[in-house]
Design a binder for these strands. Structure first.
Lengths: 116, 116
DNA sequence: CCGCATCCAAGTTGATACTG
DNA sequence: CAGTATCAACTTGGATGCGG
């Protein structure tokens, strides 16, 4: 399992470590709206991602305390993931990231057209 | 050289890719204040990082357009790195990240003390 | 001072198959 | 449905040494 060492006391280094998972940001983004089931998450991912990988990413985020896993004892099984309190506080970052990301995409596009 | 594929059109995926370098965030943070020289950057890093690694990270950020590299023709050489325009716009994210990181560190501390 | 080339070590992801 | 186990493949970072 992925257990990132979070003892680096600098906020930026710590953030970097939390975000190091390939899908961390997008998962947090998907969970903003409320609880989502495992398979639903998998379907909503922007690229194909195996359940192995998804499972690992979720475990890591859960271990770090950003998300909460709730299991319902049913057949068939049902598991929902949602943001924890500290996870919800991350939404500020997500917002900033979304805005910047959009601007950046525009920037890259323009750079490309200039080249041609 | 690290050339991250930035064609994913979703802002979050794109951001994630840009931030995937182990030191991206901290480097952008250091460059906020203005131009910094190569060796100075190396010294300011929170952990020891070889110049090879630093060089690669900087090249990646430069290639992505976030930072600008200016070389002065001198002996001994002198190279300064600074934020580009789109790089400066990233400061919003940095701020949010810094705030959240601090909160998160507190959160982790409390969790640990409860365990004991 | 700055940085590249090379090689190696480590960590992450992906593919596949199996389980309650 | 929601995982885990295992192993192969790939990606990164780090160490070291050479060069302008």
């Amino acid at each position: 399992m992925v257990k990132r060492d979070l003892t680096g006391l600098c906020p930026y280094v710590t953030s970097q470590k939390v975000l190091s998972g390939k899908w961390s940001i997008y998962l947090l983004y998907l969970l903003q709206e409320g609880p989502v089931r495992f398979n639903e998450l998998q379907r909503k991912m922007p690229e194909d991602i195996t359940h192995t990988t998804l499972s690992r990413q979720l475990k890591a985020l859960e271990w770090e305390g950003l998300i909460v896993r709730q299991e319902f004892s049913q057949i068939p099984p049902r598991v929902e993931y949602s943001l924890s309190e500290i996870g919800m506080k991350f939404e500020t970052v997500l917002e900033a990231l979304g805005d910047w990301g959009s601007e950046y995409i525009e920037f890259v596009k323009n750079k490309d057209t200039i080249k041609k």
